[in-house]
Write a protein that binds this DNA or RNA. Structure first.
Lengths: 191, 191
DNA sequence: CGGTGTGATGACAGAACCTGTCATCACTTT
DNA sequence: AAAGTGATGACAGGTTCTGTCATCACACCG
């Protein structure tokens, strides 16, 4: 449907990531982004709530993936096992797009503003998992605890995945981190 | 030492909390805050990095309290026990200033911008605990996991404390939540 | 006692972010 | 062919935040 070039949203996101990477987030103005995408500043704000949001396109998809994975876990799986399965599904997705994920992460982690936005998105993911757990019968506060703890594991595992390009198996790191956490909680800190 | 009225920083923080409470965060401009404090806009930004930061005065103190509590935990305490002790110390502090904490929380939780800032502060608290754990010999990734998980417990327990004014014992809620988490991780979801 | 810092503040300009509002225009529907 | 729709452009304007220079009380120093 288009009098105009198609996919304005995608063009804006693409232009933004390029410019943020090329010359830095703070050095890039919204006008520059829209100029590269062949649009005007006002239109940028019709597609994205603010200058940060353009980098968090995929969050909604991640949320759905986590919620669906929790919902589809075997009925006899524990809450934490359902969360673990969801995390591994998301980890596999990250790994399948490793290059883009790493590039985006480099931009985000370099700017406090963007890290803040990332954290609230992660909180949203936790909330989605908690809701899905409650739907399958997990009571409170266990649902919230399992979900928040899952995000804590995701943070730690993701950081290790980023730091160690030689170990590309993110789902494996997630599984290992969860196991490690069980040890930590069980009071047997490993050597 | 002053040609000017003393404690400009405190006056600004006080005026800001008042105005945010009276008329809302978004409806309050920095100029209004400085007018009430008898200063100019430019001076506000000499004391606080931005309009949000003025609400996060106490974070540095909380960070020190957590780090100190972890460091001072018995040498034979596990990582998670040290984290638990630190959380309870912070919880006691919150409870001792319950009114102010609740008031501030009402403002923060009503605005996404402020929740973002809160989350990055919480991440800073986790980092401080992780550092303190490493100092006392906890290896990675256990240190990061224990710290991040501790913050996850804090979030859940704090929310319960806020939601249920009839149950004022935050340290107790923290201890119970940690115990509950051990159950969740041990795969025995309670009735 | 007078000169010279020093440090916090004021004054002012200006860039960038974000919003409200109305006009435009191709395409669709009736 | 007329009316409707939806995305975009154009423009004005408020707010946040920064850079820069001036001011002024106090401290220190000779």
């Amino acid at each position: 449907m288009g009098r105009w070039e198609p996919n304005a949203r995608g063009r804006l996101a693409q232009a933004a990531l390029e410019l943020y990477t090329e010359q830095g987030y703070e050095q890039t103005t919204v006008v520059e982004i829209t100029a590269r995408a062949g649009l005007t500043e006002r239109t940028f704000y019709r597609h994205f709530a603010d200058k940060r949001e353009v980098l968090f396109f995929g969050t909604e998809m991640a949320k759905e993936l986590l919620a669906r994975s929790v919902a589809e876990a075997p009925a006899d799986a524990s809450a934490m096992d359902a969360v673990g399965a969801a995390l591994e599904a998301l980890g596999a997705e990250f790994q399948a797009n490793a290059e883009r994920v790493r590039l985006r992460n480099a931009v985000v982690s370099a700017h406090a503003e963007l890290r803040e936005r990332e954290l609230i998105k992660l909180a949203g993911l936790a909330e989605a998992m908690a809701d899905a757990l409650r739907d399958r019968g997990t009571p409170d506060p266990a649902a919230g605890l399992a979900a928040e703890t899952g995000i804590a594991v995701l943070k730690v595992a993701f950081a290790r995945w980023i730091d160690d390009p030689g170990r590309p198996d993110l789902p494996g790191i997630l599984r290992a981190s969860t196991a490690e956490l069980r040890n930590v909680l069980a009071d047997r800190t490993p050597a």
